[in-house]
């Protein structure tokens, strides 16, 4: 695991519990979530149509797309409810000194 792939997203208090923030890096968009048991990251765009998931609702371990209510599991990326049927990519997250990092491949 090379160190340089860990990208700093921001401080842990920038995300409220059961919520998410959008994080743009180079030409890609990610969503970083704070769930009751820690931080998680996925691609920031729905797999159904090109819509930002940042406007979606986080409920338990799920993110619901704001456009057509497709639902994904935040931890596994699995598409749980149509019209979304393609899984969402997930990324490793670590917290170091109250800062959140995600590992982008």
């Amino acid at each position: 695991m090379s160190e340089e792939n860990w990208i700093e997203v921001g401080s842990t208090d920038s995300i409220e519990e059961e919520d998410l923030i959008r994080f743009d890096h180079q030409d890609k968009t990610f969503c970083v979530y704070r769930l009751t048991d820690g931080f998680y990251a996925t691609d920031g765009i729905c797999t159904h149509e090109a819509v930002h998931l940042e406007d979606g609702l986080v409920m338990d371990d799920e993110i619901e797309c704001p456009m057509h209510q497709g639902i994904f599991n935040i931890k596994s990326g699995e598409a749980l409810s149509p019209p979304a049927c393609e899984d969402l990519k997930t990324y490793p997250v670590k917290v170091d000194n109250d800062k959140i990092f995600i590992k982008i491949d």
């Binding site: 729905c46 979606g56 609702l57 619901e64 704001p66 456009m67 209510q69």
Partner: peptide, 11 residues
């Protein structure tokens, strides 16, 4: 625009 109202409508 796109999904801007989705979360609030869901709530």
């Amino acid at each position: 625009i796109a999904g801007k109202v989705g979360r609030d409508i869901r709530i």
